[in-house]
Amino acid sequence: MSKTIMVVDDSASVRNVVGIALKGAGYDVIEARDGADAISKMKGKIHLIVSDVNMPNMDGITFVKEVKKMASYKFTPICMLTTESEQAKMMDGKAAGAKAWIVKPFQPQKLLDAVSKLVLP
C-alpha cells in the first residue's frame, strides 16, 4: 500500500512540481494551498507533511504548531520546503516541531531522499 504525503504550498506550480516528484516515486499526494486549507483536508493516515513557510491565511510555522496540537497527527513528521534560508527562521521551524528544512529551489532527488528518511513506516 502506497504512503500518503500532504503538500502544502500557496503556489500551484510548486504543488505540481512536488507532486510530479512524489507521485513518480509511488507516493499518494494530497494538496493544500495554505495551513488552514491543509487542516481542513487532514483525514486518514498521513505519513508525511511537506509545507511551505510563507503562505496567506495560515503560514507554515503556525500550521506546524497547529498540527502538533492535533492528537491524530502530532507525531506526523513535517518537512518545511521554502525559499526562506535564514538560520533564524529555520530555528523557528525547528522550535515549532518541524523535522527538516529544504531551501527552494530543490533538486527532486534530494527531496525524495529526505522524504524516504522522514516518512512514517
Binding site: 534560508s85 538560520q87 533564524a88 521551524g93 528544512w101 531551501v103 529526505a114
Partner: peptide, 30 residues
C-alpha cells in the same frame, strides 16, 4: 523571503551581511 531580495537590499543600501543562512537546495534535518 528570498536570498535574492536580501542580497539586492544589502548591495544597494550598503548594509552588512550578518545573518547565517542555508544554500538553495540544502536539506537540514532537526
Amino acid at each position: 523571503t528570498t536570498e535574492h531580495e536580501r542580497a539586492n537590499h544589502r548591495e544597494l543600501t550598503g548594509e552588512q551581511d550578518t545573518g547565517k543562512r542555508a544554500e538553495a537546495g540544502e536539506v537540514a534535518f532537526f
